[in-house]
Amino acid sequence: MESTKNYLNPRTLAELQSLSLRARRVVDGYLSGAHRSAHHGYSAEFSQHRPYSPGDDLRNVDWKAFGRTDRLFVKQFIDETNLTCTFLLDCSASMEFQGAASPLSKFDYAGCVVVTLSWLLRQQGDAVGLGLFANALTTTLSPQAHDEQIGHMINAIETVSFEPDTSFGAVMHQWSNQARGRSLVVIVSDLFDDLDVVTSSVLNLQHQGHELVVLQICDRDELDFPFERMTRFRDAESGAALTLDAQAIRKRYRDEFQRFTDSIRAQCQRHCIDFVQVVTDQDLGDVLSRFLVFRHRQMMLGV
């Protein structure tokens, strides 16, 4: 069990070449943890009983069985798709960035997150889809509720070609035009675009009835800005260079970054959009927990 839990650590994940293998390890590691009984399914057809564990929803306790056996059992139901989830994964060149201390690039980490979550959702029987975007949607996989979908997603992610520019607003608009029905939309991106464009695009999606989760993928270097000397920064997307005394502007840079993130977070909170900042050296278990807790809360609220 310990060995599988290790796969929640990005550094260990980085040693695995295959995204499929990475995602499976993450899922195994995660499900063998403390929250194994929390989310099994929410369909109507009864499947089986299992012993009650602290934390299980009391509404699912089979009180009749308790009366017969004097033991607590939880009712489990047969999987049935009741959710359509689309992952919109940023594949602009900025996502290719990998800091000096980071084990994975932002895109690799984001891919890992997408596939892992897709896997979990598929375990629940939900339909998952994928959209890869940069300055336009480059790849679109419509949500499907069969197991081959994960393979298609992995294939799409592993064969991605990075685009040199991002056009967040146009992409969201494009996707909303071709989306059928309302669904859970998980935007996985560094969000490095104009603040107003990002927020307006996200809110626009929400207005169209989609349920939104925004995962901002960041590298530790992008947060801390650890450079000390004169440094020539070359834009990963446009290629433009900027030479400056890194130490002298560190504080200002951090402030600017924090201000950007805080603005998006505030907008999301105001409109009940879940915003999660993910750093590529973070344990994936934390990321999954936060996502699933969010999903659980949504279920409890009956959203």
Binding site: S94, F192, F233
Partner: peptide, 28 residues
Amino acid sequence: LRRRQVEPVTWAAMQFLRAAVAARSRLV
């Protein structure tokens, strides 16, 4: 020499960098 010995870095978050430089370049 210090200016010449620059460390090249491919950087993604350029928009924050430009904003920081715009605010600090004169002081620096």
